[in-house]
Design a protein around this nucleic acid. Structure first.
Lengths: 402, 402
DNA sequence: GCGCCATTGTTGCCGTACCCAACAAATGCT
DNA sequence: AGCATTTGTTGGGTACGGCAACAATGGCGC
């Protein structure tokens, strides 16, 4: 387990902090934008050409980025060299779910390089999921090019995570309680492990690379087989709260209904907008999101339509309340929530307006996610990449044993 | 009106930024703690003695702080000189309400030095409130010691404010719609004016100096004659949202009730937990919070108790939902909400638990505010002080004309 | 292909903001 | 009074970003 972070960051800044800040700013830009000409770095950072040269030089020396000549683009003047994060440094992402555990290798600029998915029986025990993850990780590590270094492992879990020590406090759909997943996986792999919530991770990914890119304030709702998860970005930072449990939007109570969710909360979003209810009216045992989407978009059964209407209204209420609370630029919907939105956007939006103060929803954009299932992996990797971005020169990377 | 802020802050930092950051860090500490020995500044900032000496010297030269010898305290060694913000630099706070307009002078360390309250007929027109504010401001300015300089005017309004230009979009209880209050008051006073929400301002004040001091994550709910306002602090920063309308917690929908608030939202906290309903069962036309508190604490009328129970339950629902969303350390209650809490804390807390996920509420502290009516003024002043804290050397202060 | 223009990268020097160490100053304690 | 302890001050050192001159690289007109 890696926890890092000093007890109390000193408020003052010295030259070292300055350097670190600038290294961090450059690496962050590359993290976000991938390959970028040096000129772009100078204009965005506001730093001098010579300073950028020096900073990039240091990042190259650290083995974090590479430089190459730009393709000919027809512009006048000496072409600016292109800087990009190297694929020699990667993060490993893990995502245990009710029906499968997935492991991926993610590059510094947020591309999923490899992915392996291992289906399981429903609700795997923690030890089972851990074995699968460990096995997949070592298989993937064996396949990495030589010289690759690993920043760490990010784990995205559908549950409530105490972030500072990586303990899964409660993952209702997996049936996990107080599982010290971070420590366990760190022991198995010998890598630093960071654990976070799955929807919050996906939210981060969509805000960095996906449909909420550029929105400093965004709200994310995702409905999967395990219920509804959420994430919030405030001022470009993921909302964590005092202990890391913030953003559990599926469990927000929005009505006086008696129906309860897996956490025992009545009238919550997750209790009202249920995938299983849809499967039932469609008389399906299980379905992929694509199959469910097709059925939702094409059904004319009045009984189904009534359910869709109610779910759309309830979803709209939640989005409205969240708009009143957060005044976001963008609300992203994932999983079958996207289908509800596509099926009857006007209905959803009018429910949003009825449940929110007008100014907060007037500029609001509601849309579906873009990254699909990659979002969770990218966001999980982000957990492990974040410390490196914070302190590019002060982070030790683990050389990959083959 | 003062808007300032560059279009896009450059990501890089140079020596100037470094100096500014450190000046800012020192001034912020004094802002928060008032008089403080230099030693404390060195230990908290982590900067060198000589650097602190230099920084304090610059702040003294800027006329923002003063130094004096410490009182004898019996400790060994050379006594450290005490640094404190000067009362020669102040902010003016304005708070228009339905029944009065209040103006105050607030010091850099958050003390209300003078306060004047002018009662009005209900729902004053914007022009009326503006005239009162202008008059009170010039009276207070005439009473300031010579040499005093003013950072600006902060206005806390019970309504939705577009922060970047100080327009009151909608203040339901005042009946104001699209009032460019910032510009108007800036013209009248010749001072930079910053406008914000009243409850958000009070929230800021309580988080800096009051009952939520030290809580990096806090939620604030205040019930006054004008309804229920809210504020949220995330990671020591006030939640503003994309356009500044975030944190309108009174308008969050928490039940399926048909009762609507002044913004037309059904089942919102403000629609359900109404001061007027209490006045009615107590058969009162109006009452101060103190009088109402006495009645709430001592009533045995079963009809009243039923109402109190329902309001307590509804308040608890809201606090529970907010805990699930924000996972705060502290939830503060102001106005008669404090009385509901004091009257039956176990009931409130059990409602909170029923509406929140367990980990998010397990360490939660619910309590009343400490600053009372000063909170709004201190928070309003904070709006005007914030730019100075951000850039102590780069902010121009207005010398007070007498 | 050659000269000119535009733009970027490189290099050496400079200034500044912080650190450091030595010393001076101020207090308590014996 | 002298010592110990702590803090403020001062002069010099250093690292890091800015700057300006120059070199490098490509497009364009002829």
């Amino acid at each position: 387990m890696a926890t890092a972070q000093p007890l109390r960051a000193p408020l003052g800044a010295n030259r070292e902090n300055l350097r670190q800040h600038n290294l961090s700013a450059v690496l962050r830009l590359l993290h976000l934008s991938g390959a970028v000409p040096r000129t772009h770095l100078t204009s965005v950072t506001g730093l001098n050409r010579s300073t950028i040269s020096d900073l990039v030089g240091e990042l190259v020396a650290l083995g974090l980025v590479t430089e190459r000549d730009a393709e000919v683009d027809g512009s006048v003047g000496r072409p600016s060299r292109v800087v990009e994060p190297t694929d020699q440094v990667v993060a490993i992402a893990v995502n245990p779910e009710t029906d499968a555990t997935t492991v991926g290798v993610v590059s510094l600029d947020g591309r999923v390089l490899v992915r392996r998915r291992h289906p399981t029986r429903l609700r795997p025990e923690p030890e089972h999921a851990l074995r699968i993850a460990t096995k997949l990780i070592s298989e993937l590590r064996a396949g990495l090019p030589s010289g690759t270094r690993i920043v760490g492992v990010g784990v995205a879990v559908p549950g409530m995570i105490r972030v500072h020590d990586g303990v899964v406090r409660f993952a209702p759909h997996l049936g996990w309680v107080e599982v010290p997943l971070g420590t366990m996986l760190a022991q198995q792999t010998g890598l630093p492990v960071y654990v976070g919530n799955d929807a919050a991770s996906a939210c981060t990914a969509e805000q960095l690379y996906g449909a909420a890119r550029g929105s400093a304030h965004a709200v994310y709702l995702h409905a999967g087989s395990g219920g509804i998860g959420g994430g919030v970005v405030v001022d470009n930072h993921l909302l964590r709260g005092a202990s890391g449990y913030a953003g559990e939007l599926g469990h927000m109570q929005i009505s006086s209904s008696r129906a309860t969710d897996y956490s025992g909360i009545a009238g919550s979003l997750e209790a009202l907008v249920r995938r299983d209810d849809l499967l039932e009216v469609f008389k399906l045992d299980s379905a992929t999101d694509e199959e469910l989407d097709f059925d939702i978009m094409h059904t004319k059964d009045p009984r189904v339509l009534r359910l869709l209407h109610r779910q759309t209204d309830d979803l709209g209420r939640a989005v409205g309340v969240l708009s009143t609370i957060f005044n976001p630029q963008t609300v992203l919907l994932g999983g079958f929530l996207t289908s509800l939105f596509k099926r009857d956007a006007p209905r959803l939006l009018s429910a949003v307006r009825a449940s929110s103060i007008a100014p907060a929803s007037e500029g609001l954009v509601v849309r579906g996610g873009e990254l699909g299932t990659a979002a969770v992996l990218i966001g999980a990797a982000e957990l492990a990449i974040a410390p490196l971005l914070e302190s590019p020169a002060g982070t030790t990377l683990t050389p990959n044993r083959r």
